[in-house]
Design a protein around this nucleic acid. Structure first.
Length: 258
DNA sequence: ATGGTCGGCAACCGA
């Protein structure tokens, strides 16, 4: 079973590249973030024509998440909270009896701001939601853009970046709590060494070439599923050549019959 | 060479 996650930074702007990638890589499940499209405009038929099911929750201009799957999705949930007005950052579904959560964690702007507090609150609420609804002894996959790098080896310049948004101890503490609840960071399991990134800031010129990246996208799995992961990689080659996103595809392979 | 990121969406906001 091939599982992937990608922050699109507009699914409409990169639809043809994403479709090419899907046809080439043939993932079973693909979690997308920052689709930036309202539900009535989501390119659902494009994915259906390619042989995929799709579930999505979007809003105008910002955020937006989707799960694309070769296999039917059920038990679909669109909200982290039980409110109508929340941002489109959470979507979950069950695929072949495996629960999947796709999250787009708030970016946080800068420590000490209201946006940063919102990010911390959202992460805590995600942790609380998972703790209240799942059991670490059973299969669960959580993927997405967490906008938090955990360890010094996960950013290009830990000394300079320490304390900045995305590499701040308050965010890392909640991420660690989430992992300690019962997740394995699948990338770290297979690649214990550093220097692998999933995000390069557009605002840094030639950030990819200069290796000025961050590992802020994750595929997390509870122990019974993590035991079945066989490989993980970041698809830097296919980083949307003609229209690069600031993120890359992150892919994990599981020894599961799908 | 005298600038130097994107996308959405229509002026700037968010990343």
């Amino acid at each position: 079973m091939k599982f992937a996650t990608f922050n699109t930074n507009s699914i409409r702007a990169r639809l043809s590249s994403i479709l090419d990638w899907v046809k080439r890589e043939n993932p079973d499940i693909l979690c997308l973030q920052e689709t930036k499209v309202q539900d009535q405009d989501f390119p659902v038929t494009t994915f259906e024509t390619a042989g995929y099911h799709a579930t999505f929750k979007g809003e105008k201009s910002y955020n937006g998440v989707a799960i694309i799957s070769k296999h039917p999705l059920d038990h679909i949930r669109f909200n982290l909270y039980n409110t109508e007005e929340e941002a489109a950052r959470f979507i979950s579904a069950r695929i072949c009896d495996i629960p999947v959560i796709n999250a787009y964690v708030p970016q946080g702007f800068a420590p000490g701001t209201e946006k940063f507090e919102y990010k911390l609150r959202w992460l805590r609420d995600l942790l609380g939601y998972i703790g209240n609804n799942y059991d670490p002894g059973y299969p669960l996959l959580v993927a997405g853009d967490f906008n938090v790098a955990l360890e010094p080896i996960d950013v290009f310049d830990p000394e300079q970046l320490r304390g900045e948004v995305g590499f701040h101890p308050d965010e890392q503490a909640i991420m660690r709590e989430l992992l300690d609840w019962g997740f394995v960071d699948i990338f770290r399991k297979h690649k214990p060494e550093g220097g692998y990134y999933t995000f390069w800031d557009y605002r840094i010129p030639n950030a990819l070439k200069r290796k000025m990246g961050w590992r802020i996208d994750y595929i997390l799995a509870t122990a019974p599923l993590a035991a079945k992961s066989t490989d993980v990689w970041v698809d830097t080659e296919a980083r949307m050549r003609e229209r690069p996103s600031d993120h890359t595809f992150l892919i994990a392979e599981f020894d599961l019959d799908f």
